[in-house]
Simulated assay, not measured.
Amino acid sequence: MRRRRLRRPVYPYAVTWNEAEYLDYLQSERRGYAWVMQHHGGLTPEEAREAALECYPYESAEASFRGLIFHDEAWHWAMLSIHGDRYVVEHPELVHPSPGYLALE
């Protein structure tokens, strides 16, 4: 399935996504996160899916700052999980998403 690129929210402004757009984006980011965790983090497909669900839980429309995690893409959050907050310094080759990750789009 192709990842849809929706407008990332800019906080503190309100996000105007409808529920279908939010769910589509949530699924897209979960898919990207799981892909990174499997291909770069060594998790099994099931472990990667579970990690994605944990990182990207569903948030109700009434939740404060719903979708705030979307301000950075799944690649970044997965790299933080795998390599820690200094990954940009210690692994500069991982700052930009790999071709395989980009192919998910």
Results as ranks from 00 to 15, higher is better:
1 M>V: 11
1 M>E: 13
4 R>L: 15
4 R>W: 11
7 R>K: 14
8 R>E: 08
8 R>V: 15
12 P>Q: 00
15 V>N: 10
20 A>V: 05
21 E>V: 05
26 L>C: 07
27 Q>Y: 12
30 R>E: 02
31 R>S: 11
32 G>E: 14
32 G>N: 10
34 A>D: 06
35 W>P: 01
35 W>K: 00
37 M>P: 06
38 Q>N: 04
38 Q>K: 13
42 G>A: 07
42 G>W: 05
43 L>D: 05
44 T>A: 04
45 P>D: 04
45 P>V: 00
45 P>N: 06
46 E>W: 07
47 E>R: 11
48 A>G: 03
49 R>Y: 03
55 C>T: 13
58 Y>V: 10
58 Y>K: 06
60 S>M: 10
61 A>C: 02
63 A>I: 03
64 S>C: 02
65 F>D: 14
66 R>H: 01
67 G>D: 11
68 L>Y: 13
69 I>N: 12
71 H>W: 09
72 D>H: 15
73 E>G: 07
74 A>H: 05
74 A>F: 08
75 W>V: 12
76 H>S: 10
76 H>F: 15
77 W>H: 15
78 A>D: 09
79 M>R: 12
79 M>P: 06
79 M>A: 14
80 L>E: 15
80 L>P: 10
81 S>F: 08
83 H>K: 13
84 G>V: 13
87 Y>S: 07
91 H>L: 13
92 P>Q: 04
92 P>K: 06
93 E>M: 01
99 P>A: 06
99 P>Y: 00
100 G>E: 10
101 Y>D: 01
102 L>M: 08
102 L>I: 01
103 A>D: 12
104 L>R: 04
